[in-house]
């Protein structure tokens, strides 16, 4: 089991690193857009690229957020229950989530497929085919499903992590 968790972890981490690089790029792309506009250079790609990198980063990082246990939840009840009952409740909730996001991955794939076959383009000046950003959404959801699966495994097969997890951000 530990091995499976490890493999899934490396997929999730890779996806997070990809997302990080996109965020890094966004800052520089936006900055370049401003400079280029000052010099009247053609920068049609800046707006769509920054938006699509943002979309890609957002979806690729959702699984990592799951792994770091940072999807916000109200744990008043979970923390009151006995550890065993809490574990069972958590498993039920996450199995439900697994099914839910499996469905969402499937229907997102359908959306991607329809954009691909209909050759739908966006309304930006460079007319990017929208299956490109949508592909990242499909990949993001797929890895997310894996990360929920990993979470369920971790409930039963991994020792509880230490409490002093650093909280960062909003």
């Amino acid at each position: 089991m530990k091995k499976i968790i490890k493999v899934i972890d490396s997929i999730i981490d890779f996806s997070a690193i990809l997302a990080s690089l996109f965020i890094f790029c966004i800052c520089f792309i936006v900055t370049w857009g401003i400079i280029a506009r000052e010099f009247h250079l053609k920068i049609y790609w800046v707006e769509p690229f920054s938006i699509y990198m943002f979309i890609a980063a957002a979806f690729l990082t959702i699984p990592y957020t799951m792994k770091m246990n940072e999807h916000i939840r109200v744990d008043i009840l979970l923390s009151k229950l006995s550890p065993k009952v809490a574990k069972i409740l958590d498993t039920v909730l996450m199995t439900f989530s697994l099914v839910l996001f499996l469905y969402i991955t499937k229907v997102t794939y359908d959306m991607f497929w329809s954009s691909w076959t209909m050759k739908t383009k966006d309304l930006s000046i460079i007319q990017v085919p929208i299956w490109i950003p949508q592909l990242f959404v499909v990949v993001g959801w797929s890895v997310f499903v894996l990360s929920i699966f990993r979470y369920i495994l971790a409930i039963w097969f991994e020792e509880k992590k230490s409490e002093s997890k650093e909280i960062i951000g909003e």
């Binding site: 997302a19 957002a58 990592y64 960062i168 951000g169």
Partner: peptide, 9 residues
Amino acid sequence: KAAATNTGM
């Protein structure tokens, strides 16, 4: 990665 985690959330 920390910024990305927040963005994802």
